[in-house]
Design a binder for these strands. Structure first.
Lengths: 346, 346
DNA sequence: TTGTATGCGTTATCAT
DNA sequence: ATGATAACGCATACAA
């Protein structure tokens, strides 16, 4: 592979001049610049980014640590991250499937020297883990509790969104509302459960543990949880799933059981993934601006990278919005033919 | 940020010894090793991977270039890639939204010095573009035509899968079968269309251009295309969508129009994304082992990286499988409660 | 406008 | 078992 030296030799100039052509081309004479560019092209030369970043101490890359990669939620988050990052000239190095603290810390160390900052999405992370990351590496936490304010974070307005959705179900007359909970130990899951409880409390309903099922945030989990819930006596009349994947699993289970939605069972989800409106019946959900979530985290991270020193810790909260569709049984906000992007998908 | 020198000084050893501890720890005395590790921990030292790869000329990273990031298909591919790559100790640097040749080539150059190999998924790529990548960088093409055999590639058995699905619809008695085509210029889209044509030809059906609509591989595109198809006279009795996203859009459109599936319109998709079975009715599709696709591409790439010289170009083809569910109107292969992974999703 | 020389943080080679 | 030092490929301060 051709190096800057090869180009310099071939073009009869010094490496410094070649370097200048590939950076501040301004000060080099046009004809020599052209000659250098020609030689570089013929040699298929491209600067070695590793070497370059060694001296500039800039990688133009941000690291993204994820727990997993299933489903539309993640692809939307990554999309938002990717768009914003590359819009600012940054690359993305993605590492997923980190389920415990040890793995995460190892992954964080492995990022040293590869990235200018870290985007961390993990229910298992806490402030202590961050102590193991090389200091001075900017970090933004995504969907995780940033205890204190020692680290930047972007979180979803889970509590309010869940409370609002359950309040909506209550306002429709439901008295026995079940919840399919998200993954254990997950921050979003815990907050959404808290919102559910708050709404019930505000309506003076008695809490009922038999109406709370684990669903692990997956379709299959939602399916299984629904099967369980239908066996509870007296039967719930509404199911609030802590995310859309589980709600989709619930719809599937209810269909298999011959339970009509929303006539005999109201169903609601959370996240409002793109597919929610394509369900039958279209799924009521709590809209989360998913790709925005990623985009804002990147924005915050880039700010931290640029203003490393005078950067004050901050915590952003993306707001949610109730989206009522047919599955919850109310008159609908929305039933137009979808006017979404019609871009080439792949 | 602490460097190897800081650790060496603090531990009163040379940098060479520190380096040995972090690599071939075998030859260093246990007590000095421990001292060095302690110092490193207290300094929060982690080796600088950029510097390391500069001299080892290994990055332990593979680059992934994608055209886009929408939908479940991509997240599944990436999942397969990620799992296989990190299983072999490789990181992933992902770059998407590359829609034309110029962008792709720029992205490829930007990868120089960051990656040991490249995974390329793009309808717009051809052999010429590859000439602009620094030679000796292994490349695997994903879902793209590798003209000749000058480059490794993994492709889907599109033609056969599509022909089989359309044949299935024909065997159910359909005579007017519409197709919602994928994105223009896309290899998969073209091959699936070719399979559709082949099946019609084999049944001695007259080709009918009014039954072919563009859908761009998106849900919204599938929705819009279906609206158009329903206006065609005489009306088709079956719709074959070139991917599941569009099929889901089609189901949604048919529901809005009050057309019953499969009684009044059979629908089939392609890819068999995880959601297909959760549709109402469950979607007949052509199963593509999506995450395998990514996994095998990585395997091929790693082989190319390891055996750079004696690596012969190869071309793998992942096979598809007809999955008949209710949407196509046939007696079903499948209708069990889903027994899928119930792992924590996030 | 261009060239020379130094150093970024690490590993590898050769000593000791 | 450990140390000194030369690379790796590049950008940049300083000279010319």
């Amino acid at each position: 592979m051709a190096t800057i030296k090869d180009v310099a030799r071939e073009a009869s100039v010094s490496v410094a001049t070649v370097s200048r052509v590939f950076n501040d081309a301004a000060v080099v004479r046009e004809d020599t610049a052209k000659r250098i560019r020609d030689v570089a092209a013929s040699l298929r030369y491209a600067p070695h980014n590793g070497a370059r970043s060694l001296i500039t101490s800039k990688t133009s890359t941000i690291g993204v640590l994820l727990p997993d990669l299933y489903g539309e939620f993640f692809s939307e988050v990554i999309r938002g991250i990717d768009l914003t990052a590359r819009g600012s000239g940054y690359h993305l190095i993605i590492s997923s499937s980190h389920n415990d603290k040890v793995e995460i810390e190892a992954a964080m160390r492995a990022m040293r020297g590869r990235v200018d900052g870290l985007l961390l999405m993990s229910p298992d992370i806490d402030a202590n883990s961050l102590l193991n990351v090389p200091a001075s590496l900017p970090v933004v936490l995504l969907c995780a509790p940033a205890k204190g304010h020692e680290v930047d974070s972007v979180i979803i307005q889970n509590f309010r969104g869940a409370r609002e959705m359950v309040g909506h179900l209550i306002s429709l007359g439901h008295r026995r509302i079940a919840i399919i909970k998200g993954a254990l130990g997950n921050y979003d899951a815990a907050e959404r459960l808290r919102g559910y409880h708050a709404a019930l409390r505000e309506a003076d309903f008695m809490p009922d543990g038999s109406l709370e099922c684990d669903g692990g945030f997956t379709e299959a989990g939602g399916y299984a949880a629904t099967m369980e819930l239908l066996a509870v006596k007296p039967c719930p009349t509404a199911i609030f799933a802590a995310n859309d994947s589980m709600a989709i699993g619930a719809l599937s289970a209810l269909r298999d059981l011959g339970v009509r939605v929303p006539e005999n069972m109201a169903v609601a989800g959370f996240d409002d993934i793109p597919l929610a409106r394509y369900m039958d019946p279209p799924l009521s959900s709590v809209r989360v601006p998913i790709s925005d979530l990623g985009a804002r985290a990147v924005g915050m991270l880039l700010h931290g990278i640029t203003h490393k020193n005078e950067h004050t810790r901050r915590r952003e909260r993306v707001s949610t919005e109730l989206v009522v569709r047919r599955s919850s049984g109310a008159p609908c906000d929305e039933r137009p033919p979808p006017a979404r992007r019609v871009r080439k998908q792949r």
